[in-house]
Amino acid sequence: MRQMRMVVLVVAGILGAVLVPSGPAAAAPGNPGGRAYVPAEARAVNTSRPDRVVGNGTPASCTSRAVVAAVAKGGVITFNCGPGRVVIRMTATAKVRNTSARVVLDGGGKVTLSGMGKRRILFMNTCDKSLVWTTSHCDDQAQPQLVLQNLTFADGNSTGERLEGGGGGAVFVRGGRVKVVNSTFVRNRCDSTGPDLGGAALRVLSQYRNLPVYVVRSTFGGAKGQGGVCSNGGAVSSIGVSWVILNSVMSYNKAIGRGANPSRGGTPGGGSGGAIYTDGNRFTVQLSGSIIQNNTAREGGGAVFFVSNDLTGTLRIDKSRLRNNPSAGFETQGYPGIFYRGAGKPKITASSLS
C-alpha cells in the first residue's frame, strides 16, 4: 500500500490546507505540443518579491481565511505551505477589492484552491459597490488587473448566484483585466439551466477597452470526470468580451441547459458552448496551439458557441485541434463542434476539425 502523507490540520478552529497523497506530480497544465507565440503581456508575472505570502511553511498555516485576507489586500501573493502539493479548502469566496491596482495569485504549481462543491472560489466586480466603486464608469476601467498563475481551481460552484446574471463556478470577473497562465480548472459547476449564464470555470464581463482575456498554457477539465458543467460554457463564457486562448486544453466539459438562447417556449434555456460560450456584439476569439476535444453541448456548439449579434465579431483558429465535440442540437455546417454567427466565416489555419 502506498504511503500517504495526508494530514487534516485544524488551527484555532480554521481548516488548514490538506497535504495531498505522495506520488507522481500532477500533469503540467496546457498543451505541451502547443507552439503558439505568447506575447509579453500574456506571460506569467514575476512574483519573486511578493507583497504578501499565504502560509508560514506548513500546510496548517495555509487557510481559507488567509487567502481571503490576502486577496482583499491585493498585490502580488504567493504561498508558503511546505514542500508538497496542498489543497486549501475555501470556506468563503475570496473577493478582490476595487481599490487594488493589481492582484496576482501564484500557487507555484503546488496549490489547489477548492470550493468543496459548495461555493465560488474567487470574485471580482468593479461595479459591485460593496467592493468599493472607484469610478463613474465601472464597466470600463483599467484596474484591478487580476492574474491567476500556477494554480488549480477545483470544485467551485456558483449555483444559485444570480448577481450579474450568475455563472463563474470557480472564478467570476467583471471589469478591469484578467489573465490565466499555467493553471488548471477541474470539476467546477454553475447553474444547470438559463439562457445566457455560463462559465463553469471562468465567467468574464466588461473588460477594459475590450482588451482580451488571455488564457495561456492552461487546462480546463483534461480527463473524463474532471470537466466543468454548466448551463452554457462548460469551461468559459462571456458577453461582449474578447479572448486569446494559447497552448491550452479544454476537454470533457459540458453545457447541459435546455432550450438555447433565446430560450424556446416551455424551456428554461441554455445548453450551448460545451467548452466556450461567447455572445455580444464586437468581440473576437482566437484559439492558437490548443486542443479542444470531448466536450458536449445539449444544444449548439459542442466546442465553441460564438454569436456576434451585430455580425462584427470574428473567430480565428490556428494550429489547433478540435475533435469529438458533439452538438446535440445545432452547429454551423462545415465546422464540426462550432456554432458561429459573426463577420464572414471563421478563419481556420493549420488546424483540424472533426
Rank of each mutant, 00 (worst) to 15 (best):
G222M: 05
T267H: 06
S288P: 02
G259F: 03
G240H: 05
I276D: 09
I239Y: 15
S231K: 01
G198V: 00
N210D: 15
V229A: 08
Q226E: 14
G273M: 03
S242Q: 03
V241C: 10
L197G: 14
S238D: 05
N232C: 06
F283N: 03
R264M: 13
L202M: 13
G265W: 02
I256K: 15
R264S: 14
N210W: 02
A260G: 04
G280W: 08
K254T: 00
F283K: 04
A223E: 09
R209G: 12
G289S: 12
G280I: 02
A200D: 03
T219C: 09
S272K: 08
N261W: 04
K224I: 02
N210H: 13
Q286C: 06
T193Y: 12
S192M: 12
A275G: 13
V204S: 12
G274P: 07
R258H: 14
D279L: 15
V215R: 10
V236N: 05
T278M: 13
D279W: 11
D279T: 11
S242C: 07
G269E: 11
G266W: 04
G271M: 09
G233Y: 03
N232S: 11
G259S: 03
G233R: 02
V249Q: 14
L205H: 08
G194I: 00
P195M: 09
G271H: 04
L197D: 06
S206L: 11
T284P: 00
L246Y: 06
V285I: 14
G221K: 00
A275M: 07
S192I: 14
S248N: 11
I276Y: 08
G259N: 05
W243F: 15
N210M: 08
